[in-house]
Amino acid sequence: MDIIVPIKQVPETSNVKMDPETGTMIRDGVGTVVNPLDLYAIETALRLKEAHGGIVTALTMGPSPAVKALREAIAMGCDEAVFISDRSFGGADSWATSYTIAQAIKQAGRYDLIICGERATDGDTGQVGPGIAAWLDLPLATYVASVTTLPGADAPVGLSVERLVEEGYQILELPLPALLTVVKEIGSPRLPTLRGKKRAKVTEIPLFNAQNLELDPAFIGLKGSPTKVVKVATPKVMRSGTVVRAHDEAEIALAVDRLLAFLDERGLLPRGDRP
């Protein structure tokens, strides 16, 4: 089963600066990691590969340094990688990003399955996975917490998955090829191995850019993005809250008293008489 895993490089901390002009992130001088939620997608792909054979290809789109994320994916056990990078792709929103990635996947070759993380921890939209599925017209299951394969004559022909939804788990059957986005419950991501790290250094990673990708120039980058950031503000984090000390019995009783009065004032105290 050949699997493509689109991943994203994200800032390591949450202390990111924004460019007030373009409303996009300033990535310089900030440590980066593979989006933590993408590690679960890589893990899922590697487990399926271990059970059914095939090749796992990590794919990312981003500025030049983002190639590092692909090397980390190879170190974890991915076989190959594809890098999508071009100045003209910069500032893409989830619509333009999913278009560009979908075009690259079309050109990258054969696949049975695409597995994405639930969302990236920086942009936090979760829109690129479903977007890619729409572009490629692939059956889609989001928030997948478990996967089992439906066996065919010699290879799996479909998947049965459990989606984490508000009511519990929705169980779906999808034919292959398909696209999944997975959640943390799917399994703990493995650590990179020494052998993997060595392989990561020497693996050749093909580059897709504006020259060798078939793209509608009106659909890429900041210009091709339907959404525009108009304003970025730093919300006030502090609330003018009350903090009380509860170090002995009397203080505890008083603190709980005040808490109940506070909750009551806000209409949050459950039914019953006023304290």
Partner: peptide
């Protein structure tokens, strides 16, 4: 969060999450 990005691609428009 699943159907809206799908539709946004189909009808070619912007979508803002959450």
């Amino acid at each position: 969060r699943t159907v809206m990005p799908h539709v946004a691609v189909r009808v070619h428009t912007g979508l803002t999450a959450d």
